[in-house]
Design a protein around this nucleic acid. Structure first.
Lengths: 237, 237
DNA sequence: CCTCCTATATATAAGAA
DNA sequence: TTTCTTATATATAGGAG
């Protein structure tokens, strides 16, 4: 933004980089501040300047309180992919190369440990993948992999229950649509969780993927908070 | 910024606050991303949505690594932290990636390609995970998470296809059971025409068409806010 | 490193879908 | 909630002090 459209890649000129950092850091903090006040939410921002000095901002409560809140989150809430991966997609593919560019600048002495770390990461991902695949097979698994009547009936039942729920929900939505003013009805349901059969292949797979193609990855908020009184506080500016 | 100059004070209208949060969060992440790339610095951003869900961004390295780097700074460089020890401990537990200390760059060399390869592998895994999560939500997601008629119909279609397949398979197995030796055990080619039970009719074409129009992204994670001071109660949809 | 200035690039509030 | 549009408000690159 400014006189010239700037490429999002490392600014090579040291002085320029410093200046830009300074300006943008302020901009970022301002934005963070505004967000925390406007939406009354916790925001924590930590930035290390090119020279190694740290700058922080935190809205609504202290930085360590927010960090504590963060580290106390259950893993699935914390370890998701709301960060870079998300951004890569949200902002577009252009990032990938700029992102990789940094990699070479990694240390040499720790390469071993880094590699090791990455391998662990990969392993972890693969475990998760396996787990999910297992669960997914219950639903998407090719029916030809069902070898016993019992299995077939079991799966049929699961699907029936699920279908029924969805239809009920659909009905509610239709009613709502037909008669605006009606209240949102959210019925509690139990969802099948830990079933394990052994099946492969996916038939509806392509259909599903199709719809996922143009989707974005982002968490969606579905509820809001109603607080009486508002108090925007910030420390760390 | 926008049609109207906005006062920096809590937005009282819940819906508006949500929307603004969503938009500004993205904007903030983008800015943070740009800063991290342009200036080649570590940036960590943690935001809790009005509903208590967390959104994070981290540039150059993982959020845990950056937090660790921050927490381990000498006190005079960042101010006193109330929970320093606790945080250090907690962060240390994120063994997967949090124990990498900051290290200056030297000369990488041949290991680069290997590292990059692994990086891509990780990214790929994460994408797969994400993809599967979405598919899984179709089945395991609570039906109350469905908010549009479109979504409901979409899920219904998929479940119908699946149910039908299972029933076909079940039929095959039953026949086999009734007349042993008459058919191959592992036979899987069931023909819809032969096994039409007359219910849950599905036209795959419709499903595909549907999915093209559809959009659906919802986080079905349970949320937990322990040390926070807001009480979320409101209807988001 | 910060401030001011100016021309542009971006972000985003509203409103509709 | 997300997406798209449009009108405006802001952020910020370059340059000077």
């Amino acid at each position: 933004m400014g006189r010239v459209k700037l490429q999002i890649k490392k600014i090579e000129n040291t002085t320029n980089r410093q200046v830009t950092f300074s300006k943008r850091r302020n901009g970022l903090m301002k934005k963070a501040y505004e967000l925390s006040v406007l939406c009354d939410v916790d925001v924590a921002l930590i930035m290390f300047s090119p020279s190694g000095r740290v700058s922080i901002f935190s809205g609504n409560r202290s930085i360590d309180e927010i960090m504590t809140r963060y580290v106390n989150l259950p893993e699935h809430e914390r370890g998701k992919l709301q960060n870079q991966e998300y951004l890569q997609k949200a902002l577009g593919k252009f990032k990938s190369e700029a992102d990789r560019r940094y990699q070479p600048a990694t240390s040499p002495g720790s390469v071993d440990s880094q590699v090791e770390e990455m391998q662990q990461k990969i392993l972890k991902c693969k475990c998760q993948l396996e787990d999910m695949e297992k669960r997914l097979r219950i639903y998407e698994g090719d029916s030809s992999d069902i070898n016993t009547l019992f299995e077939a009936e079991y799966r049929e039942q699961i699907l029936q229950v699920n279908l029924k729920q969805v239809r009920m929900r659909k009905q509610v939505l239709q009613d709502q649509y037909n008669s605006p003013g009606a209240q949102t009805t959210t019925q509690a349901t139990d969802n099948p969780q830990d079933w394990d059969h052994g099946m492969d292949q996916v038939l509806v797979d392509d259909v599903v993927k199709l719809s996922l193609l143009e989707e974005e990855t982002r968490s969606v908020e579905d509820k809001s908070c109603e607080t009486d009184g508002f108090e925007g506080t910030q420390d760390g500016v």
